[in-house]
């Protein structure tokens, strides 16, 4: 499976200062979002991982969109990610 990730609102700083990422998991068809997020924290962030994941979910204050819709419509962290999904993470924690 292949997923596209978009990081905005300041979060890109944690992810090599890059907005767009594609992750491929050759041996998987689906993956729980929780697992993906923890994997991202453990393998993709150089410093301050607690700014992305807190209590094994996305830190409150970061909005998540699954295929351009609020993740709360799809069960939030319990969502099962599929091949071709696009996930957007937007921090709202920066000044306005």
């Amino acid at each position: 499976m292949k997923v596209k990730i978009e990081m905005t609102g300041g979060l890109e700083i944690l992810f090599k200062n890059q907005k767009n990422h594609t992750y491929e998991f050759k041996d998987r068809d689906t993956m729980p979002l929780r697992e993906l997020v923890v994997w991202m924290r453990d393998t993709q962030i150089q410093e301050r991982p607690e700014l992305f994941v807190e209590d094994s979910t996305v830190r409150p204050g970061i909005l998540v969109l699954i295929n351009d819709a609020d993740w709360e419509l799809d069960g939030g962290i319990e969502y099962i990610v599929e091949d071709g999904d696009t996930l957007s993470f937007i921090s709202t924690l920066h000044g306005g």
Partner: peptide
């Protein structure tokens, strides 16, 4: 649903899209 262009959706996308009885969508 999952038509995010580019990447080839290898699984599902069989004829009737809503017939997959997954909990989501």
């Amino acid at each position: 649903n999952n038509n995010n262009g580019g990447t080839t959706p290898t699984t599902t996308t069989t004829t009737t899209t809503t017939s997959t009885t997954t909990t989501k969508r």
